[in-house]
Design a protein around this nucleic acid. Structure first.
Lengths: 198, 198, 198, 198
DNA sequence: GATGAATGAGAATTCATTCAT
DNA sequence: GATGAATGAATTCTCATTCAT
């Protein structure tokens, strides 16, 4: 009997997504260090060998997660930057609080940093990640410029400000380890306040 | 002839320091992921077995590096906070630029984050690191308070400001991977400016 | 409507042959080591599972290739031996140059040797291959005898001569790896000359 | 206590030789197909991990065996070719019967052919093996020339004769699978006779 | 203290075969 | 018949740690 090709493809995509989600879940629950194929398989309720029907290697899974994550972030942040119904401050606020509120973002930032730190070999992956990171600064830079034109954001090089903004958010994200987070509240208002004229 | 116990102890300490330095060197050159005992031994020009005459385990080496690093940082930052000959802004500037200029700080920050991310087991080590991190916020908090009294630093919760300050510096540090750093300049002036009244 | 059983059987045989041809193609292109079911399936443009509708196992495919190959060789060499229109020398020449000119023979010899070398388990398959090899010496032996009667072939035990003749051809075949063949010309004349009285 | 460096090096060489011998033993007993690290370790009575203290990979073991084997053969055959106390026929006889009498030679020839057949990847190893094979034809070629000058060896291109001689011996060797050898006697006299004027 | 061989548990990956659709 | 996801055993290699010398 002929298979339904479209349905098959959809199931396949769902399986890939299931595996990628399982990786992020595992990171949230057990940390980056315990990422191994058999744990991933257990989390996804697949057999070890079956994972390899969807991804060529463990690295490919991680690469794909990062690619997707950075891409989604790019789309998100670009859309926010282009909105005309809210002020630059509201835009920053929106970006900042969305980021800090998502569990996955923490795991995702962990992964990025972990790869940039860990891998000796995959120099080209690190380069790609860094390049995408740099590109993703541009929408934020645009928001900063907009804010400067409206005299709400302080007058520094807007790309530099974007860089500080993102690094600050990432730095804060890294402190939020589920079991051991630093006992200091953080709030989007306070963070954005740093970038405003007073 | 009786052994010179004090001298022996000194040699022993030097060896331990040699091993710990080798670890940081390796992280700078090859990343956290390729840290293993035989590489460490090669870097330190000792034999594998001999490493275990100075440390009980690989973990103990890492723990000790972190302990020492955080301790030195604590001493440094406390001293800076207590100085009476410079302004709070100058203090922040001093801390910020010292931190960003040292190669070892990068490797060290890597290690901290790596351990906080990686280890599933040693929950208590992560707790210790986080506790020390939190304690080390206090001198910065004090500087912030001082700056607020002098009406130079913005009026936010000073502990929160300290937290942002340190997270920002750490976030920036993590972008500075030797081979793949983000092509955006950063300068202490710009960073501190964020925390100043304008 | 009743199925056309004969036609079905023919299609089935074609499929089996397609699979076996694909195996030999793969060996020529990629070597014996990379033979695996999914590669075979890809080469034959069938699905993995479907292969198992025609053969019970991978081993069965190999067995069948060997059986057919040795059988065809037997028929070929027997026919040549029985011809009355050409001299024994011409017979040897014919056998020798046919063998050396076919790409498939190289892959086929590879397979035989590979199985004889590789398999620990299927002792009985190796025995079968060796028995058929020995049987296939007989037509050659007959040609040698014929040549000796005509005083063209040297006077040694004709079975031994047949054995040398075939081993020599196989030995030469094995040197002819597509990408790395030994840079020495070989020609049927020279080879047969060894077995002739001079 | 200081170690005896020279002794250590000797022990190390013995271990490497033990491992290489174990590989050849295994091939003789179980065939090329069952060569795997854990079998090798068992045969050598070492632990799996320990194998890797002496060789970087399984491939390195095989490479080293081949290198040594081809080198020893080169030395052997060169020495024989250069002898002045025996006739060319005696030289060929010596080479032929030494080769056919050694168990290891069979395993060794198996290995060479197996590698040339199996590996898709290690193109450069195959090239090296083929190059050395070709070089090792030269001493035989020299013997053939010498025989031709003395009008004992038939008048064909001596390099071609050498090629046939070696291929024939290899072809015969491959038939000598311990458990399934072809039931035809072979003898050095008969083989060499093929190359003699009659 | 110094050395590096020895160990063994685990990691990633491959692959023949089965099975639900 | 046709498909390719699913399985799990087997394989290569790594590495922290121990131990005899």
């Amino acid at each position: 009997m002929a298979r339904n090709v479209i349905r098959d493809e959809k199931v396949r995509e769902e399986r890939k997504q299931l595996i990628m989600d399982s990786v992020l879940q595992l990171i949230v629950r057990k940390g980056v260090g315990s990422l191994n194929i058999s744990e991933i398989a257990k989390e996804a309720k697949l057999s070890v060998g079956n994972i390899y029907n969807f991804f060529k290697s463990k690295d490919e899974i991680l690469d794909e997660i990062l690619r997707k994550g950075q891409e989604e972030y790019r789309v998100f942040v670009t859309k926010v930057a282009e909105r005309e119904d809210i002020t630059p401050i509201e835009k920053l606020h929106f970006i900042c609080s969305s980021w800090l509120s998502l569990k996955n973002n923490w795991a995702f930032t962990m992964m990025i940093q972990s790869i940039r730190m860990n891998e000796t070999v995959r120099e080209e992956l690190k380069t790609v990640i860094t390049r995408r990171f740099t590109q993703n600064l541009q929408p934020i830079e645009k928001i900063m410029k907009e804010g400067q034109e409206q005299e709400i954001i302080i007058n520094e090089n807007p790309l530099e400000l974007a860089y500080y903004f993102v690094s600050l958010i990432q730095g804060l994200t890294l402190q939020q380890i589920p079991s051991n987070s630093v006992p200091v509240k953080m709030n989007a208002d306070g963070i954005i306040h740093l970038f405003m004229k007073k």
